[in-house]
Design a protein around this nucleic acid. Structure first.
Length: 372
RNA sequence: GCGAGUUUGGUGAAGUGGUUAACACGGCGGAUUGUGGUCCCGUUAUGCGUGGGUUCGAUUCCCACAUCUCGCC
């Protein structure tokens, strides 16, 4: 499916303001996608997501394959119907990241990856064809090609073999997609911290007819400078007229830095995971709501925030909920954290339009890194 | 009033005549980047009811007092 991506404005250093279309409407980039691994953005309803200005979410092939199974979702009429998310598109991840994150005894071959299910220990084989078949049944709007996300660090030789195999998997993933008319498909660039491999991966993947291109294998434990280089090495060789998606990155400053290097969309578990552990994102950095200093604090998490949480609840109350392990507290902070990131993306778009994004970055970083 | 037993941090509790008094919970702080929601890391009693005594040395042994529990009058 053609996403009709348009770059509306590009800065001299490569930050882009754009938009793309799905049957759900027109979507502005740069944008941030909250993660709903198991057909739910943890603790939140679709209405709450919409109110937090999240208009696209990510869900996960691997998890839904294991439970409840793609046929169950298909039987319900697809993921949107199954989870009652009918306000925007869904992108499904391919399962390749689990090769890295589950890090169990794994067996990667040309055919695919052998996993042991984390639910019952059963041995499973995930291949490019299987990943695409599952995503076809899930009925997401954007599907991801199957890739390998190697750990960090890894030798140049290992990475070279991995990148070449990921490219072959990308071709097989493309061939396997039976629903190209209704489901857009992205390829994934790998290559670790190696410039030659990132370049090769970006150029070769770009030759394939994808609707967008992802930069994967970032934020896997590398230092901050290496992280930025990984992105630059890839985006330098990606087509300018297609969406670029930086996978798994969600620290506020990283989002700005990604946009500056030409990234259009991001996803990350950070806002919801931090929320479940009592951490709120604010302009002045992260705030651990558990801290005793908030015990009698009757102000909202952020005074000028327009989210449901900040308009209605105090830090004193939210702290009590988190300390008492009440899920409503996790939900309230999740709402705020997602709104914080969608608002950040709105600000980023505004400053690309004004062409002062670099100045905005300096101002943002100076406040965000200053611990109150 | 008499007899027996009890007394270790915020809580539940281990423990020993000899350097820094287990462990758990709680508290305080941290961590968290394509999510195995309940996970992880650090820290938290200069003191073992009070006062004496024995001993080179006592939270550990002895005495008195206090405390709470049980039994008897």
């Amino acid at each position: 499916m053609d996403l009709k991506f348009k770059v509306l404005k590009e800065t001299s250093y490569g930050a882009r303001l754009g938009e793309f279309k799905t049957k759900w409407g027109t979507h502005k980039t740069p944008m941030f996608m909250p993660v709903g691994t198991q057909a739910t953005v943890k603790t939140l309803s679709p209405e709450e997501l919409k109110d937090a200005h999240a208009d696209i979410i990510l869900s996960n092939t691997y998890h839904l394959w294991l439970r409840p199974g793609e046929d169950i979702v298909d039987n319900a009429g697809g993921l949107h119907e199954f989870m009652n998310y009918k306000t925007g598109p869904i992108l499904t991840d391919c399962g390749g990241f689990q090769v890295f994150s589950l890090a169990k005894p794994k067996d990667i071959s040309e055919e695919g990856v052998k996993f042991k299910s984390h639910l019952d220990g059963k041995e499973l084989l995930l291949t490019p064809e299987k990943s695409i078949e599952i995503q076809n049944k899930l009925g997401s709007d954007i599907i991801m090609s199957f890739d390998e996300c190697p750990p960090y660090p890894v030798t140049h030789e290992y990475m070279k073999n991995s990148v070449e195999r990921t490219l072959r998997w990308a071709k097989r993933s493309l061939d396997a997609n039976k629903k190209r008319e209704t489901q857009a498909q992205f390829g994934i660039v790998q290559g670790g911290e190696f410039e030659d491999l990132r370049k090769w991966s970006a150029i070769e993947t770009s030759k394939l007819d994808f609707d967008g291109y992802s930069v994967g294998g970032v934020s896997v434990g590398e230092d901050p400078i290496t992280k930025l280089k990984m992105i630059e090495y890839a985006t330098a060789y990606l087509p300018k007229d297609k969406i670029r998606y930086l996978m798994g990155v969600g620290e506020p400053v990283d989002l700005i830095d990604g946009v500056i290097r030409g990234i259009d969309i991001f996803d990350c578990v950070l806002p919801t995971r931090l929320a479940r552990h009592g951490n709120a994102l604010t302009r002045n950095g992260r705030t651990n709501i558990r801290n005793a200093k908030f015990i009698k604090d009757l102000t909202p998490i952020e005074e000028d925030c327009d989210c449901y949480t900040c308009k209605n609840y105090t830090k004193s109350y939210i702290r009590h909920l988190i300390v008492s392990d009440e899920s409503f507290g996790q939900r309230l902070i999740s709402i705020h954290n997602i709104r914080f990131l969608t608002k950040l993306m709105e600000d980023i778009r505004y400053h690309i339009e004004k062409d002062d994004l670099l100045e905005f970055r300096e101002e943002f970083v100076s406040k965000y890194n200053k611990k109150q």
